[in-house]
Nucleic acid binder design. Sequence first.
DNA 1: CGAACGACCTGTTCGC
DNA 2: TGCGAACAGGTCGTTC
Length: 258
Amino acid sequence: MPELPEVETLCRQLRTVLPGQRIIAVRLPDPKLTLTEDLAGRSITEVERRGKALLIGTTDGPVLRIHLRMSGRLHWLDMPEALPPYARMVITLDRGRLALCDPRRFATVLLEAPEAAPASAPDAFNAPSLAALTARAASRKTPVKSFLLDQNVLSGLGNIYVCEILHGARVHPCRPAADLTLAEWRRVDREMRRILPRAIASRGTSISDWRDLFGCPGDYQQELRIYGQTGRRCRCGGTIERRTLNGRGTFFCPRCQR
DNA sequence: CGAACGACCTGTTCGC
DNA sequence: TGCGAACAGGTCGTTC
């Protein structure tokens, strides 16, 4: 579930609590999750985001990479309160606990060497080059929506924000990526730069159960113009439709997205 | 090689 | 009301 704005929200919040704290213990109640080293005794240096993944650095030690996939959440607990349900990893620190909760158990954790940062695609939030994007799209017959969701092309976009970006750009999600005109790519680029910062400022989209590190919902669900709006009226007067594309729910307005 | 599809999991919502 | 089907914000491996 968490896409770039939600993971960026967690990253910023983690930066306010984790750096400088010492790890007392790491517990992994779900046997699906394992780490190759015990982090107890190490201190946390910094927190970064790579696409939809979070990287937590330790002093002279490995980097903990967390990917929340569909239903993963992070909770900061600074009181001796009960753990939330579905806790899959609990890190006890000097001044609190960090819990990774995930009912569907898709989330992953991994330790990696600090220098082993695998080259990743340009981040959707860090102003990727429009020229690079159009160059990569040149030979792709795949629908532009699938193209933008491809984390090897651009990292961070997920289903909600791709639908919102294509709608704002007035581009039909099924159009082959290679067929978009330069003017259309400019609009996609513009919408990406408009929507992502706004969604981050709203601390993400809480359609059902997204909560930030401190348990607060985001506000961007109020700004959604297309995602989940089947049957409702588009701003252009058209009626919003839902279609399945590559197994994902896809929302668009057949009137203004050509 | 690129594209489509099932698998991975469990919980919630929808339709009859 | 009850029950099964469909659906969910992501990625990966297999197959065509």
